[in-house]
Design a protein around this nucleic acid. Sequence first.
DNA 1: ACGCGGCACCGAAACGTTTCAGTCCGCGTT
DNA 2: AACGCGGACTGAAACGTTTCGGTGCCGCGT
Lengths: 375, 375
Amino acid sequence: MPPKSDPPARRNPAARRPTKRHATIRDVARAVGASVSTISATLNGTDYVSAGMRARINKAIERLQFRPNDLARSLRLQRTHTLAIVVPDISNSFYAEIIHGIKDYGAALNYTLLIGDSRERWAEESNYLDLFQRRRVDGVIRVPATDDAGGHAHRLLGDIPVVYADRFPQANDEQIGCVGVDNVKAANDAVRYLISLGHERIAIIAGPLTARSSADRIEGYRRALAAQHLPLRRDRIRSGVFDMVAATREAIELLARPDRPTALFCGSNITTLGALDAVQQLGLRCPEEISLLGFDDFSWSTLLRPRLTMVRQPAREIGMTAARVLIDHIEERTRQVAGEHLLPTQLMIRNSCAPPLQNAPAAGRRGRRAPGRPS
Amino acid sequence: MPPKSDPPARRNPAARRPTKRHATIRDVARAVGASVSTISATLNGTDYVSAGMRARINKAIERLQFRPNDLARSLRLQRTHTLAIVVPDISNSFYAEIIHGIKDYGAALNYTLLIGDSRERWAEESNYLDLFQRRRVDGVIRVPATDDAGGHAHRLLGDIPVVYADRFPQANDEQIGCVGVDNVKAANDAVRYLISLGHERIAIIAGPLTARSSADRIEGYRRALAAQHLPLRRDRIRSGVFDMVAATREAIELLARPDRPTALFCGSNITTLGALDAVQQLGLRCPEEISLLGFDDFSWSTLLRPRLTMVRQPAREIGMTAARVLIDHIEERTRQVAGEHLLPTQLMIRNSCAPPLQNAPAAGRRGRRAPGRPS
DNA sequence: ACGCGGCACCGAAACGTTTCAGTCCGCGTT
DNA sequence: AACGCGGACTGAAACGTTTCGGTGCCGCGT
């Protein structure tokens, strides 16, 4: 006997839903005694309709509370006029700003936005990518989760165009659209600023290396140190950190040792907060005993004490650019969605960074002193 | 001559898109030499399919990278399995948490979530409601924008079920589903706590009265004062404040006057931040010179100095409950989506509240002293 | 010999749009 | 008188699913 097949399992026996929920275009047509195609024509202004007819139709639409069914429309049009984005954490104001940027740019061109929150988990992200594909969105913007398996997961989207924002895939051999900032330059600038204050023992807490942006920031850090012939110590580089508690743990570990760094450079806004937490837990005075320099500014960063010095990314602009690149490609104004779009960063100097204490056992060269308003 | 009608304006002359973007169920059928209905049956497990056939179909699905078109599916099914929410500010972690709650509950039942951000503007919100209706979502959760015109805007949704979260419409004559907290009780508790510390001059910065929750918090404040026979002064009640700068302005105004309050009760997390900003700008020491008590806890509130004492709302649970109520109604397990679902709040005592300074010119009764660990 | 019920499959009609190819009419030109 | 043409409107075929009513087939009990 061949293996028995499944029990039929009829979908839902009692799910008969006889109530008509919405007026259709056909209802409108019947109401004014016109044909369906005429209604469609007046709705979209796509063919001649006399003024009288138009008035009657609009009246009927109003009366029947008719709202066109976008599902049917998209099905027919093979276009959903929808963009989708998946971010690792919707409540991170940095990503929220990116979302706003996309939304604003898209709204002007009549696109709507589907938002996914992967919580930094590839499993959830791939769910969203699948969903986006089933919903036939016109384009996707990814801020890939850090445990992105393989990185070329854009394959999962069929031929739906993708652009990456903020975090770039490590291998960019195939031309993929990326929009963000020049992370090596930004990190380089930031660390050079710390060096200019006189710091020599600088540690970095960076994100996971699966994201090229993290690697780039480490690279910028490396270059800044090398340019001043400062030693590069592996134990001052912590990568793979993206959530707050991990950052706190790493920072405590870094700061507990005897030759502790005099400055800490953090690779994201939440890791900066984690580091701040660590500093406070250890009872260290910031910036006197430890300088803190973060990435991804946030709106309430000035409420913290000390007010945090941070590298600001133009989040809104990143979103808008991503949307522009994507939509341009969708509407075939540009051949392929490729290349990197790098936007400028800005070092927001506040007061979490100061020259290191004089009695610090800084072997070797004495650094030059720079303004950097202490306290 | 009758008024000339519009120029025809053909939609988009060059928008011929001959490329087949996605494999359809029909392609799969052809590939395995079966009928469309058989594919559908194996996809949904809705009818008998032999094991062999199933295997071949799955292989073909894999090979063709077939993803079912949810648009067509929803159109046919008259169900989108989609919930939608519109919040006033997506980057406010309170709302982000609510969203997470909805998403988690919904995901378990295979619902997906559409997210809208109204930026506290009715115009944007109504756009979203319209969009939701055109997309035929199965249900909507609203956190209405503060300038909600009229409040019974749920009419705009046709007969799509709605539930309100966090902010309730002021007039709840018609039975509408609401899920949130008992705001009068929460505010009452909070103010009573302040009174128990010895405060007598307590001001409140509340949200707009168009949201009943704001009015309720004021009511709770009022009752707490009345219960202790403390005077209720209109000039210590500021309402209509929901953004940070407005809160700062109001707080400065409140704190600049000679008989300034010794404690400030804020109606939301961002207004609390605004007040904190004001306190810092004025150089007042908190909690010694001014106690601060806020609403809607947020995750990094412990990083601020002082660590803020706040009324915590169970945001995630609010989201989950809202989703539950809505889905129950959608799947007709419950007759109508109505009634209030109130969840418990929690007063997170940290150290932004302390007894007022002794030399304060507090006329009349001396208050009892309570623990409330100062500093 | 017949009926019957479980299994495996198929065809076609929906769902609500858009669009293409007409049709019909009145008017101005050859 | 024939023709062309712009304006106003219509019918029907898609778009990609689900589902309902079939239709065979096979084994079994009477």
